[in-house]
């Protein structure tokens, strides 16, 4: 077992590679009580988790995350809501970091403007620019480790339909011009004694521009290992099943398993192996 600590965005990139979804996880966590999450105010959770992940990235080139390995990870969840402004951090599940504003709340609807929905990783100051003097292995490393970040701006609409939560997001990256993405997800929570179980199923669209940022390889940076690749738009499905159980007033036990298929267009990239993403995690978190 290797002990590694990751920033939430890095983990989000490696585990889920998702630009969509949001706090639907925290919504369905409420046990499917059919109420808006805006009833909740602010909290932050810190914890440690045991993660087993199988992701389609070309692991041979990357050293950050070993396929099928059991990893000790660092967990961060949280949301801060003040005067309808929101900051949400959802780690290891389906979302990265959301900065936004809730401008409509009814008992069954919530509409948020997401000023910034961040997913991916960004390392300031690290040299990823390929130049002519780079060796082949240096080129490969730079292609694999280059900054990949999606800063989506758009709308998120959540409907609380009985015990179900339906959430749609439409985002566009105006900062890095990384295209458009969207998702439609449905989730439901169940309570069995003090176990809160949730399931989420959804579909996700990514434009060709967005996929180019994730999986594309420009012709001027291509190597023998990573030949030039122009990505197309994709649609994929994902699902997640999880639980949360209070240990006491300050600690919770969380667990989830998830699966998402890698669209054919993405799997043609040499950065991606032809397999789907699956992950499972169990964590103990302190709630502040």
């Amino acid at each position: 077992m290797k002990i590694k600590l990751y920033l939430f965005m890095l983990t989000a990139m490696l585990v889920s590679k998702s630009i969509v979804a949001a706090d639907i996880v925290s919504d369905v966590r409420a046990g499917g009580d059919g109420k808006s999450s805006s009833y909740e105010e602010s909290y932050i959770e810190l914890g440690v988790s045991l993660v087993v992940a199988n992701n389609p990235w070309d692991i041979a080139a990357g050293e950050e995350y070993d396929d099928h390995d059991l990893n000790l990870d660092f967990d961060v969840y949280g949301q801060l809501k003040k005067n309808n402004f929101l900051i949400e951090v959802t780690q290891g599940t389906m979302d990265g970091l959301n900065l936004g504003y809730t401008f409509l709340t009814t008992p069954t609807w919530q509409v948020d403007f997401l000023a910034g929905s961040l997913n991916g990783s960004y390392e300031i100051g690290k040299d990823y620019k390929i130049d002519d003097n780079d060796t082949e292995s240096e080129r490969n490393r730079k292609i694999y480790e280059r900054n990949r970040i999606y800063v989506g701006t758009g709308l998120r609409v959540t409907h609380y339909w009985g015990k179900y939560v339906v959430q749609a997001r439409i985002l566009n990256d105006f900062v890095y011009q990384s295209g458009t993405g969207g998702s439609l997800r449905i989730g439901r929570g169940w309570q069995y004694r003090n176990w809160y179980i949730f399931g989420i199923f959804g579909g996700e669209y990514r434009s060709a521009k967005t996929n180019q940022m994730w999986y594309g390889i420009d012709s001027d940076e291509a190597t023998a290992r990573y030949p030039s690749y122009n990505a197309e738009s994709t649609f994929n499905f994902s699902s997640q099943l999880g639980f949360i159980r209070p240990i006491n007033e300050n600690w919770v036990l969380r667990g989830y398993i998830g699966y998402s298929n890698t669209p054919a267009s993405a799997s043609k990239s040499s950065l991606v192996e032809d397999e789907d993403t699956s992950y499972s995690s169990i964590s103990v978190n302190r709630v502040f």
Partner: peptide
């Protein structure tokens, strides 16, 4: 009976503008 997430408060409904 106590709760882990304690700050659950009833929010007002309706449209909001900056």
């Amino acid at each position: 009976v106590a709760w882990v997430y304690k700050n659950r408060q009833k929010a007002s409904s309706g449209w909001r503008l900056f």
